[in-house]
């Protein structure tokens, strides 16, 4: 957490909890990557955690619903669940302005 503030320009730190190769999880990774790609100037660190492989990590973050994306930094921490097909909701959680995508 302490590192978040020192990161100039506000690096986006994300954790995406997925459940193996399940359709929603696969879709979530795809959708998230696509949105992030729309902001080339953005510094984003994405960590993908498979709760099937490490349930303890899922437990610690209390991830019941998969997939769940947690925006760890910058604070406040925010969450979004689902396959992230709802781009508007995802962008809002990421704290990004309307993506000027061409």
């Amino acid at each position: 957490m302490s590192g978040t503030r020192s990161t100039k320009g506000g690096t986006l730190r994300l954790r995406l909890y997925v459940a193996g190769e399940s359709p929603n999880s696969v879709a979530a990774i795809r959708h998230l990557r696509a949105v992030l790609a729309g902001y080339p100037s953005l510094h984003a660190e994405l960590e993908i955690i498979d709760v099937l492989k490490s349930p303890e990590a899922g437990m610690r973050a209390r991830v019941l619903v998969t997939p769940t994306m947690v925006k760890v930094a910058p604070s406040p921490e925010r969450r979004i669940t689902g396959n992230l097909k709802d781009t508007n909701a995802l962008v809002a959680v990421l704290g990004l302005t309307e993506a000027p995508r061409e």
Binding site: S22, N24, P55, G58, V65, T66, R79, T81, A89
Partner: peptide, 28 residues
């Protein structure tokens, strides 16, 4: 005892499943 209170603060961003929960339960 497993804490499984689902916070309502999470946004909904599409279809989901409970595989996360089942994974946790399976481990416990």
């Amino acid at each position: 005892v497993v804490d499984a209170y689902l916070s309502q603060s999470a946004e909904q961003g599409g279809e989901f499943d409970l595989l996360g929960l089942l994974s946790i339960l399976g481990q416990r």
